[in-house]
Design a protein around this nucleic acid. Structure first.
Lengths: 205, 205
DNA sequence: TATTATATACAAACATGAATGTATGTAAAC
DNA sequence: GTTTACATACATTCATGTTTGTATATAATA
């Protein structure tokens, strides 16, 4: 078989991305060769070079497919200003993210790659900056939610929504990092939801 | 010059480690070659191979020099059961770590390498496990300190020392990650101390 | 103490493998 | 007939590990 239909080609492209995810996860980005990826996708390097300029481009394609949607999703669950308890809303947003990571293997693997199997240098360094930006966007959403909680008199103590939001953001960053590193699930994954609840309960009146 | 005195040789060894830190930071561990490191240390690869088996061994030497001491230091500041306010003790322990990272360039660079410039695969994977272990050791120390705080009736609310310790640990993990990524210091570094204070104040009665 | 032997601390050269990118070939889709 | 979607072959670079050479520090010996 040689020349495929457009659909076939798109499937090939996707299978290369999927293969890259497996290979990156197993060998780390830098030690993964295009030959590894091609073999895993059951094509030759020719196909890989046809669809992608180089390994970096595959990496970015992989990232865009699952990482960005997760950010958007968090944004969404936080944005809605329904008449729910705002603290519960934050809690749900965090739990939802963890839940999504739990059930979505591709997303989980991609996250693991991005956090522990790649080096943020040169062309990857910009990714770090993007992560920081996404983070401050999410922190802003937290802050708004905490402000709503404050105005509804749901908060214990008299802490500023801004400080609370930063604290929650750092907590969740830490949780995600540990969640990813805890591959056997014995330390964090099994109790992630409880940790989130406890974190939010610290703030409840 | 060829054969040096034992002291000279030790200086050479150290300069190779220092060179590796610079090179790792600039190019990432995987893209750093022994030639790069040798050049930075102003020796040849012959010297590098004399002192180290390979790049991995240099990495571990680098890590042991600054990473382990930092863990020990945290352990120490937390272990003492003086009659200080236990919450302040935790706060000081965290601030002290941040302060150390601020003033100790080598430590800061090494931390940055370990967090964003290396891939945790194969021989490095064990490092991840060690990190997790160190973390739970520190979490235990937090928990003991929170128990002391509770018995002295310093805590707001009725949260368990265990939950508080985990929350603090995750907060601090997140903070360190962001602190490292925030290389220009505009988002986290400048207010790390305030963030820590705010985190602890959430717990104060 | 002077001489000799040996191990040390590298430098320099070499040999090898592996990854990359490119160029070319080709059969089927359009 | 032309372009597409690859496979195959080729050229080049580059990093690694090893081997060899060598001047000197240091230990052994006389």
């Amino acid at each position: 078989m040689v020349r495929k239909t457009k659909l076939d080609a798109e499937l090939t492209r996707q299978s290369i991305i999927d293969a890259a995810r497996e290979v990156f996860l197993a060998r780390g980005v830098s030690r993964s060769t295009l030959e590894h990826i091609a073999a895993q996708a059951e094509v030759t390097r020719g196909a890989v070079y046809w669809h992608f300029k180089n390994k970096t481009e595959i990496f970015h394609a992989l990232r865009d497919q699952v990482f960005l949607p997760l950010i958007d999703r968090m944004d969404d669950t936080l944005a809605v200003d329904n008449n729910d308890d705002s603290l519960t809303q934050i809690e749900h947003s965090l739990c939802d993210t963890v839940h999504e990571l739990n059930k979505n293997i591709k997303m989980r693997q991609t996250y693991e790659i991005m956090m522990t199997k790649c080096e943020y240098i040169d062309e990857f360094a910009t990714v770090l900056q993007q992560i920081l930006n996404n983070c401050s966007s999410i922190t802003d959403k937290f802050e708004l939610a905490y402000e709503r909680a404050k105005s509804k008199n749901l908060l214990a103590g008299s802490h500023s929504p801004h400080a609370l939001a930063l604290d929650t953001h750092l907590f969740f960053s830490g949780l995600l990092h540990m969640w990813v590193k805890d591959t056997d699930g014995s330390k964090f994954r099994f109790q992630a939801t409880e940790l989130i609840k406890a974190h939010i309960n610290l703030r409840r009146k």
